[in-house]
């Protein structure tokens, strides 16, 4: 047992990367058509997840560690299920669940506002809108053409992008690569973990980043006006033309 732990300690990065690879294989298997392939994919994916989880940095207390593990597992499993669900409605619901897991992680870190805002904005507004549209579009749920996004050029690009992302994140974890600098931790204490961090966030947004906020607001307004313009289709119909068409 001890030898295994020592081996794990020495080859932490290797185990982590192997876990990632196994997880990726599991997701690909989940995307297959045959039922046994999908079941195998679930098992392989879970094995990958466990081997990633083996070498995560440990927290001091047991309860936060357990909650962290639970929330992280929910977030990861739900995201994997989001991209592998066959029914778009189920995909949307899994997405909402993964957002809940993410929000839980934020809350655990003390970033209360960010956690709650994630739920309000994403789970509460955006995914509900998705669901609304999906239900109108496909009442029976299954759509094979949704899998087109996985074909051709997109798959390798997605793989490269996600590999880079995971590599960067893994490198910044203290147990694998460079230890995080203490100055950024102090900044974190001062900003996010501060008691009145909502007020701090507000003054930061509306003092230092005022122009960005205004620009984002304007872009959203333009999109809204555009949507209304599409609905109205340019010009109002004329009474005479319509009556002529009717008679």
């Amino acid at each position: 047992m001890n030898a295994i732990e020592v081996w794990l300690e020495e080859h932490a990065l290797l185990v982590f990367c192997c876990g990632l690879a196994i997880g990726a294989i599991g997701i690909v298997l989940r995307l297959a058509q045959a039922v046994y392939c999908r079941k195998l994919g679930t098992v392989v994916g879970l094995i990958g997840l466990v081997s990633i989880g083996l070498r995560l940095p440990e927290l001091e207390a047991a309860l936060p560690q357990a909650i962290f593990g639970l929330m992280a597992a929910i977030a990861v499993i739900a995201s994997a299920a989001t991209i592998t669900s066959r029914s778009p409605v189920y995909a949307a619901i899994w997405f909402a669940i993964s957002l809940l897991g993410t929000a839980g992680l934020f809350l655990l870190q003390g970033a209360h506002f960010l956690g709650v805002a994630t739920i309000v904005v994403y789970a509460g507004a955006i995914v509900v809108t998705f669901l609304f549209v999906l239900m109108l579009a496909q009442p029976e749920g299954n759509a094979s053409y949704d899998r087109i996004s996985w074909a051709g050029f997109a798959t390798p690009m997605a793989l490269i992008a996600s590999a880079l992302l995971v590599g960067v994140i893994a490198n910044s974890l203290p147990s694998f690569g460079t230890p995080s600098s203490s100055s950024s931790l102090e900044q974190l204490e001062d900003r996010v973990l501060h008691e009145a961090h909502v007020a701090k966030l507000g003054s930061e947004l509306f003092a230092r980043h005022l122009i960005s906020v205004e620009v984002v607001g304007t872009i959203l307004l333009v999109a809204l006006v555009g949507a209304i313009a599409i609905v109205i289709q340019g010009k109002p119909r004329r009474r005479s033309a319509e009556e002529g068409a009717a008679s």
Binding site: H112, F113, V116, A117, I119, V120, A123, G124, V128
Partner: peptide, 14 residues
């Protein structure tokens, strides 16, 4: 809970 009002809002949207 410093963001209590927002939590209520979030849960009502859930």
């Amino acid at each position: 809970a410093g963001v209590g009002m927002l939590v209520v809002f979030a849960l009502s949207s859930i």
